[in-house]
Structure formats: C-alpha cells, structure tokens
Design a protein around this nucleic acid. Structure first.
Lengths: 133, 133
DNA sequence: CAGCATCCTCAAAGATACTG
DNA sequence: CAGTATCTTTGAGGATGCTG
C-alpha cells in the first residue's frame, strides 16, 4: 500500500492549511473585502445612508443579484443596517454601522498606500514587460 | 430602433465603470492582494529570502502552478526579486524588495484591524443567522 | 530543483424572467 | 421599488505529465 502516499500527504497538508487559513482573521478580512463590490459599496455608503436604487445607480454595471448578495453579506457581517419603510412602493435604506465605518477607515488606509505606491508598481511592470520582449 | 436601449445603456455604464475601476489605484491594489496566495507569500518572505521549494513547503497545499503564477506576478509588480543560481540542480531564491516590504507593512496594518474587529463580525453573524431560523 | 504545458472541473458571476 | 428564482457562462484554480 502507500501507493497514494505523496498525494494523500499533500491532500492532508492542504486540508490543514485550509483550516489554518479559514481561522486566520486576516485571511477572513481579505476574503471579505476582496469581493468585487464590497469595497465599492462601503465607500459609496461613506457619503451617508442610501437607497437600494441609489446604490444601483452609483455602482453602474452591478447586477441586481450581485448588489443584493453583497448587501446581504455586509448586513450579516454587521457592516451595514437595512431599514425597510413599508410604503407603496417599498423603500429600503442602507447605512454603515460603526463597524462598517471602521472598515471604511481601513480601506482609506489602503487607498493612501495605493496612491503612493501603485505608480512604482506600474514602473516595475513596464520594465518587466519590456525585458520579456 | 431603441429596442435594446436599456440594455445598451447598462452595458455602456458597465464599461465606463470598468474603466474607472481599472484605473483606480485602490482597486488595483485590492485586485493584487486578493489573490489567494499573494498575501501568504508576502508574509512568508517576511522572514527572509526563501527558495522555491521552501515556499512550497510553508504554503502547504499550494499547487506548483499557483505558486509559480503568484511569484511571477509579484516579480512583475516589483514586489519580489528572483535570483537563479545556475548550479546542478538549479537553485532559485525569492526575496522581498523594498516595495514588497512596504506592502507587507500594509498587510500588517490589516492584520491589526482584523485582530481587533473580526470577533465583532462573528458576533454579528451569529445574531443574523439566529434571526434567520 | 524549479518549473512549463495541457486538460478538466466547479463555483461564482451574469443574464433573464417574474413578484410581493 | 426592491427584490427572488432559475439558467447559463466563464475562467480561476487544481491535477497530471513532462523537461532544462
């Protein structure tokens, strides 16, 4: 036996690693904000509470499905509140919580870093791509 | 005529938005670090230069393809240097550049935020999930 | 040892149609 | 207005085999 040893060992390693990764708070933060629309919604809501339709307009190109999915996720994570006004037609407002505001601050920090370093990344890419030709 | 107006308008909006998103430095930073392995490689290399095989061991579960792809991307972006020692067998070392170290600092900031806020996210999720049942 | 080339799978994102 | 339900698509990521 021990035929699939190498493979099994790798699979086990992968599983253990996945567990580690799944519990690591940083990884979970990264997973949370790396969704295509999450950061955009957070930033948009930084200007204040907003209706579903307003968000859909500001995030031009987002599908209803993705917008709803993103908002549900953020609501679940305690980043936004969802307020339904039972008028006709219905009105739903979304607003950042304190936690959401905090995350927005974190995103702002990343923005600062990006502003001052992405140009250097561009330069590196140019050099790299030129050398490849 | 004007049959697909709504659709075309949406498509145009999406394109414009995509352009905006593609040029936004923050978005590009997010895209860069949200790759599954990028942050893990950066953190691992924080302990000093490392060989390809050492990285493969530390990042248990990463496939050769993804590790190579990730390293190439980081090299292209000027985050790591790749040094080939033409011995037999070959030896390849990877090391963070100053830019890479800077990014590592940024990741460390995110780590701090995650450490102090992810517990709150967990609580929010519990409440949300309980209400849903 | 450190990859590259190829094939394949599956999950996430989008399109579309319908509704309280 | 603010969604839900369903179907389809696409491409990132993994498995595998080969090589300088």
């Amino acid at each position: 036996m021990a035929t699939t040893t190498a493979r099994q060992r790798r699979e086990k390693a992968r599983q253990e690693f996945d567990v580690y990764v799944a519990t690591c708070p940083s990884r979970r933060l990264l997973d949370a904000i790396s969704d295509k629309w999450v950061s955009l919604v957070i930033v948009a809501l930084g200007d204040g509470a907003m209706r579903y339709s307003e968000l859909a307009t500001r995030l031009a190109g987002v599908s209803q499905k993705m917008l709803t999915q993103t908002l549900r996720g953020l609501e679940r994570d305690g980043m936004v509140t969802r307020t339904v006004t039972a008028s006709v037609p219905v009105r739903v407002d979304y607003e950042l919580t304190a936690l959401g505001e905090s995350l927005r601050g974190q995103l702002a920090l990343m923005h600062v870093w990006a502003q001052s370093h992405m140009a250097e990344v561009d330069r590196a890419r140019e050099v790299y791509d030129r050398a490849a030709s």
